[in-house]
């Protein structure tokens, strides 16, 4: 697996798109920091960008890489290697190279600005870890979608729709249902739905750590009561791990049964 990972990683790391992605984060980081002149405000703005952008890039890259390397995957399948090893290796190649772009791209401007000398370092790390998780999750889901659909256009369409669902439509539905059922107690419901969407979950985790939950009013207090505890903290990280593992396992399962 390490071998397959090594080659697909070095292939991706040299692709133009990885550099564009890295360059984008670097530019974003510098602009935000030097315009805002405030680390914590910079982190909040970045959070809003990261929780939407990393899943999108993960989705697009995952689908694109899978379809583009189809013939090469076939060549690997004819080698004496287990199928699961090939797919896990390629999956790690995509996810880790994207996560690296994120970490290096944002790391440099923050280092230059002096994140280590401030108390914001943990919030910044949390942001990077959440972005990393979202990358791993959405690459896995999009590879699953690509494995299901032999048709490129369809696969691409479904993948984008999946991202749109988690990033936009889901929140809309939640909001709508909250308005419709406004007369009922919705505390537990609100907590539950935020757990079922990795994007929402990461957003809440970061917001609460930034101590601006007061802005969220009653809901913020409710969330703080849950996520602020050790149990809530462990549960939310565990949920992100589950969100990563389930699509990865599904990916290996589909790959083992698929005809190439």
């Amino acid at each position: 697996m390490i071998k397959i990972f090594k080659y697909s990683f070095s292939d991706l790391m040299r692709s133009r798109w990885s550099f564009i992605y890295l360059g984008f984060y670097m530019l974003l980081g510098f602009v935000l920091l030097f315009l805002n002149n405030d680390l914590s405000k910079g982190i909040i703005t970045l959070m809003n960008v990261i929780v939407v952008l990393t899943p999108m890039i993960g989705t697009i890259f995952g689908v694109m890489y899978f379809y583009n390397s189809r013939e090469f995957t076939e060549l690997l399948l004819a080698q004496p290697v287990k199928r699961s090893v090939i797919f896990l290796g390629q999956y790690l190649g995509i996810s880790i190279s994207l996560a690296m772009s994120l970490i290096i791209g944002l790391g440099i401007p923050f280092l230059v600005y002096g994140v280590f000398r401030s108390g914001e370092i943990f919030n910044f790390l949390l942001l990077l870890i959440a972005g990393g998780f979202l990358t791993f999750i959405f690459v896995a889901i999009s590879v699953c979608i690509a494995l299901f659909n032999a048709n490129k256009i369809k696969g691409f369409g479904y993948a984008i729709l999946m991202w749109l669902f988690f990033a936009v439509i889901y929140d809309g539905l939640v909001l709508l249902s909250m308005m419709v059922f406004a007369d009922y107690p919705l505390d537990d419901f609100a907590l539950l739905v935020s757990f079922l969407n990795p994007i929402d979950l990461s957003r809440i985790m970061i917001l609460l750590k930034l101590d601006i939950s007061a802005l969220l009013g009653y809901t913020g207090a409710l969330f703080q009561r849950f996520f602020g505890t050790n149990l809530g903290f462990v549960m939310s990280w565990l949920m992100l791990v589950i969100w990563t593992c389930v699509p990865v396992l599904l990916m290996v399962r589909i790959a083992n049964k698929k005809n190439f």
């Binding site: 080659y7 697909s8 070095s10 292939d11 991706l12 040299r14 692709s15 583009n68 390397s69 189809r70 013939e71 090469f72 076939e74 060549l75 004819a78 080698q79 004496p80 290697v81």
Partner: peptide, 17 residues
């Protein structure tokens, strides 16, 4: 598969290698 050499119909590889 150690004992089989395979030449596929379409030859495509990762572009950047």
């Amino acid at each position: 598969r150690k004992h089989i050499g395979y030449l596929p119909q379409i030859a495509r590889f990762p572009d950047n290698l």
